[in-house]
Design a protein around this nucleic acid. Sequence first.
DNA 1: ATTAATGTACTAACTAGTTCGTGTCAATTA
DNA 2: TAATTGACACGAACTAGTTAGTACATTAAT
Lengths: 224, 224
Amino acid sequence: MTNPTSERESRKNDPEKTREDILAVATEEFAAFGLSGGRVDAIAEKTRTSKRMIYYYFGSKEDLYLAVLEKAYRKIRSLEADLELAGMPPVQALRTLITTTFDHDEKNPEFVRLVSIENIHHANHMKRSSEIGELNISVIRTISDILERGRRDGTFRHDIDPIDLHMMISAFCFFRVSNRYTFGTIFHRDLSAPEFYERHRTMIADAVLAYVTTRDGEATPQTK
Amino acid sequence: MTNPTSERESRKNDPEKTREDILAVATEEFAAFGLSGGRVDAIAEKTRTSKRMIYYYFGSKEDLYLAVLEKAYRKIRSLEADLELAGMPPVQALRTLITTTFDHDEKNPEFVRLVSIENIHHANHMKRSSEIGELNISVIRTISDILERGRRDGTFRHDIDPIDLHMMISAFCFFRVSNRYTFGTIFHRDLSAPEFYERHRTMIADAVLAYVTTRDGEATPQTK
DNA sequence: ATTAATGTACTAACTAGTTCGTGTCAATTA
DNA sequence: TAATTGACACGAACTAGTTAGTACATTAAT
């Protein structure tokens, strides 16, 4: 019935490629429309395989979403690892960490969007993931080390918590990407435009460094 | 036919209350589950009225969502207006603006979530809103004025753009709330816990003030 | 020949939006 | 003053279209 003549297209099984293909398409779909907004059928259509395969490999929509999320986190983790900040003087190490974070978020808006989406869902999928739970504490050790050395050589203030500092750095870099659209609409400024890239990158690093290098007590005046 | 006996519950028409009721419930629903995740039927059930009324007053799910968003923005706008920062010395004015923003985001997580959700949707609804488009530029004027006065009396650096500074302040305050869940899961730290409130509030203000008060050229060292 | 991989066609449940009919109230008319 | 009318406010039940997930059959690989 289905094409009895010669042009019978033969199939090639390639499980890994199929899996990766689905993951890539799903990443796009979920990053674009969210978990509830993303459509399994839409993913299936954009894939060179079928919906059946999505369920064959990933079981459910939610598990597919989790796989997408895990892949995104795996990527950022490897980035932080090979920075070799331990060899640099503290100020330079911190500046490098900040600009690296900045560049990462700038270049990976889907990652930023996926994390935003996961927050809308109260991080419920992430909680179920053994993988993501473990593998993000390395940044904190890196920051602790930089802070420690900066304190010892007298350049950094003494009352900074590493997780707080990480939050501060992430906040800057993340917001610029995550809130692009509302910000752009309200202030008529396209935050993804190249003209702001260098300026914001420097500004963010300057701000964080200005903070960590202020003397403890006299930090900043409460009044003029 | 319908209950011929005495217990005929009479209906009271109260259009404004009905409208407000729907809006309040919809705000919760959309903030909790997003636009695609939020269910019109769920909203209808939690309301003391029916689904018919939602469509009667708001026309469509998307228009209801837009109404929710507009109401949220209307609220923050009124807050910024009555601050009277013009009378304060620049450093104090800026610190007040920062802590006010911080407190607002802290106390209105639904607002933060709605804005996150709107960014997932590329701010497409906001773009259609005449109301939101106009009414948020007042902050920029306020910041411009503070920066101007700070420059004149020699406390602030000269190369700061008011919109950039607003972004910086928003980023800090917003991220803490918007990324609560993923952050909490990864670092086992509940950012909504009261023990961090004062510390983060001070930290954020200190960081911004440290940045704006650094001398222009020597800002922060590129290397140690 | 047995298992792994894949495609087609389907379904059960859900979901945004609608239909149709009823209750409320205030202005108008008798 | 009592009855009438019509615009607005409201509710229950329904519909048409979608959407996540599956049953079943078929083809490749080892």
